[in-house]
Each structure stands twice: as structure tokens, then as C-alpha cells.
């Protein structure tokens, strides 16, 4: 399949998935009632549409982030979830509530920066401990994720009695794309566009780093600094996502692999634009399932993990075959 075809299929699947998404939830809204006035229009246009837009944009951001991490670290099992970036962000975002209870105002001013700080620390620790080894990095990521998830759980146990409006544990650990405002959509759109444009522009240079650090250095690219810059950008994007919708896992891991398999090409030039496009319908569909297609609502990571497990098994299997 050519990248253009995959991108076209992704875009064409967004309108029907959006209609499905808008109908789905605690109350079923048939598509012919979308434009009727009354409570339906409030649900569809003020609650579900901003959530649908957020799901599509977050899917795209996470998929591009995963693709960039996998390419730059030559590690097929990396994404912001596996690397601990998201768990770190969740802990940082929760910490903002703690500061809020301590009476510091301007909660929204420091929630994202705190989430960013811990997202960056978590990613840096994972990648430093992993030292470029594929499996060591994954194990380090699991350990870092567990550590921050535990800290989040403990923090929440302490906070939930004091701050009644704090989101529940399932939100922090597994994500709920609910109650997203159009303002947040605008911020997500800016991040999605900036990340995709920058990554597509840099794709040829990323490919060079994927082949050889040495060849990159001859071209005056500092691979370590370059990787760090991207990890910072990805940590910042993850921080904004997690502080709004909690931790969403596996999209960033799975989508680049689907793109790679479909295109039979793992170059950044091919995988990044395809992931940017494909991430949107994948999370849109996952979240439609999560918010009610099963008859009840579940956190979205519960759904994405079910989609992703077969992909991970496939990757590990292919890796084993290559070693033989």
C-alpha cells in the first residue's frame, strides 16, 4: 500500500466514525436527531463533538509521538505509554491538585508544567536505564510506569477526601475522554499540527539517525541532543493530553506498526505521515467503543490495550524470527 492510500482511507473513515461517536454514550442519539433542538443538541454539540475532536487529535499526537520514539531509538516497543512518559505526566498533573489544596491559586497555570516536568523525568529515567537496549528499555519503562502509577494511586487516596471534584483513579490510570472543551480542542489541534509538520519536515534526518549515529554526526546532526529535543516535545504533548483526559495507552505503540506493515516500509518519511492520519480514526473508534458501544462505558485504555495486544505479539514474533 502507498502512504497516500493509507492517509486517504484514514481521512475517509473519520466522518462515519464521528457520526457513530456522536450517537454513542449514556443516551443513544440517532443521527437524524443531531440537528433537533433540545437536550439532544446539547449532548451532541457541547459534549460529544468536542470529545470526538479531542479523541481524533489525541490519536494523531500519540501515534506520531510513538513513531518518532520508535525510529529515533531504533526500538519497536516504545511509545509515551511504555516509556513511562504518560504515567509521569499523570503524577505531575495530580500533584497540581495537591498544590491547589495547599491554597495556591492558578491551578491551570501549573498543572501542565508539572505534568511536563514529571513526564520528562520519567522518560529520561526509562531511556537512561534502558541504554539503547530494546528489552531493557521496555522493562525500565514498566518499572517507571508502575512507580508513578503507585504514587498517583497513593496521592489520589489522600486527595479524594479533600478535593471532591478530583477525577477518579480510572481516569488517571486508564483515561476518559469526557468533558473536553473546545478550548482544549484548539490547544490539541495546535499541538497535533505542530508535531506532525515538524516530524514530517525532519523525517529524512530521522531516517539517517535510524541508520547510523555516525553518519548523522558527519551531517552535523547531534543524535543525542536531537533525541532529547524530541523527547521534550513529546513529553510536553503528553502532559497536555494526560492533564485533560488521563493516561491513554498503546495507540502510539500500535498505530506506527500497522502503518509499517501496511506500507511495507519503516522509514520516517513513510510512517510519520501515515501514523498522523491513522491515529485519528483508531482512537476515535476505540473511544466510541469505550463510551458505550458495548452497552456501558469503560476507560479508553482498556479498549486500546485489547486492540494492541495482538500487534505487540506480532512484533515480538517478527523480531524473534529476524534473530534466527
Amino acid at each position: 500500500m502507498r502512504p497516500g492510500t493509507l492517509i486517504l482511507i484514514s481521512f475517509l473513515s473519520i466522518p462515519p466514525l464521528t457520526i457513530l461517536f456522536l450517537s454513542t454514550g449514556a443516551v443513544f442519539v440517532p443521527p437524524d436527531k443531531f440537528l433537533a433542538s433540545g437536550p439532544y443538541s446539547l449532548i451532541v454539540w457541547e459534549i460529544r463533538l468536542p470529545a470526538a475532536i479531542a479523541a481524533a487529535l489525541i490519536g494523531s499526537i500519540l501515534a506520531v509521538s510513538g513513531a518518532v520514539m520508535q525510529i529515533l531509538y531504533r526500538n519497536p516497543l516504545l511509545d509515551p505509554y511504555i516509556a513511562g512518559t504518560a504515567s509521569g505526566a499523570a503524577f505531575g498533573a495530580l500533584l497540581a491538585y495537591l498544590l491547589a489544596t495547599a491554597g495556591r491559586a492558578y491551578f491551570f497555570l501549573y498543572q501542565v508544567p508539572l505534568a511536563f516536568l514529571f513526564a520528562a523525568i520519567a522518560s529520561a529515567v526509562t531511556l537512561a536505564v534502558g541504554r539503547g537496549n530494546v528489552y531493557a528499555t521496555v522493562i525500565a519503562g514498566v518499572a517507571v510506569s508502575y512507580l508513578f502509577s503507585a504514587a498517583t494511586t497513593i496521592g489520589l487516596s489522600y486527595l479524594s477526601s479533600r478535593v471532591p471534584q478530583i477525577p477518579p483513579l480510572a481516569f488517571w490510570l486508564f483515561g476518559y475522554i469526557d468533558y473536553v472543551s473546545y478550548r482544549v480542542d484548539a490547544a490539541l489541534a495546535a499541538i497535533a499540527a505542530a508535531l506532525a509538520i515538524a516530524a514530517i519536515k525532519e523525517a529524512r534526518r530521522m531516517d539517517l539517525i535510524a541508520i547510523s549515529d555516525e553518519m548523522a554526526k558527519v551531517r552535523r546532526i547531534r543524535p543525542d541532543g536531537y533525541r532529547l529535543a524530541w523527547i521534550s516535545a513529546i513529553s510536553l504533548s503528553t502532559a497536555l493530553i494526560v492533564s485533560q483526559v488521563g493516561v491513554i495507552g498503546f495507540v502510539g505503540l500500535m498505530v506506527p506498526h500497522v502503518a509499517r506493515l501496511a506500507l511495507r516500509n519503516g522509514s520516517a518519511t513513510a510512517v510519520i505521515p501515515a501514523s498522523a492520519a491513522l491515529g485519528a480514526p483508531v482512537l476515535l473508534a476505540s473511544d466510541a467503543v469505550a463510551r458505550g458501544l458495548l452497552g456501558f462505558s469503560a476507560p479508553v485504555t482498556a479498549i486500546t490495550s485489547i486492540f494492541s495486544a495482538p500487534v505487540i505479539v506480532l512484533v515480538l514474533h517478527a523480531g524473534k524470527r529476524a534473530e534466527r
Binding site: R74, R205, D207, L208, A210, I211, M215, N265, S267, T269
Partner: peptide, 14 residues
């Protein structure tokens, strides 16, 4: 590295 990409993308890398 054993890059999984067409030879043309290897050549054009950078």
C-alpha cells in the same frame, strides 16, 4: 542499523 526501509529511503536519508 538494519533499517526496515527501501534502499531509496536509505540513500535519501539526511
Amino acid at each position: 542499523a538494519d533499517a526496515y526501509m527501501p534502499v531509496m529511503d536509505v540513500l535519501l536519508a539526511g
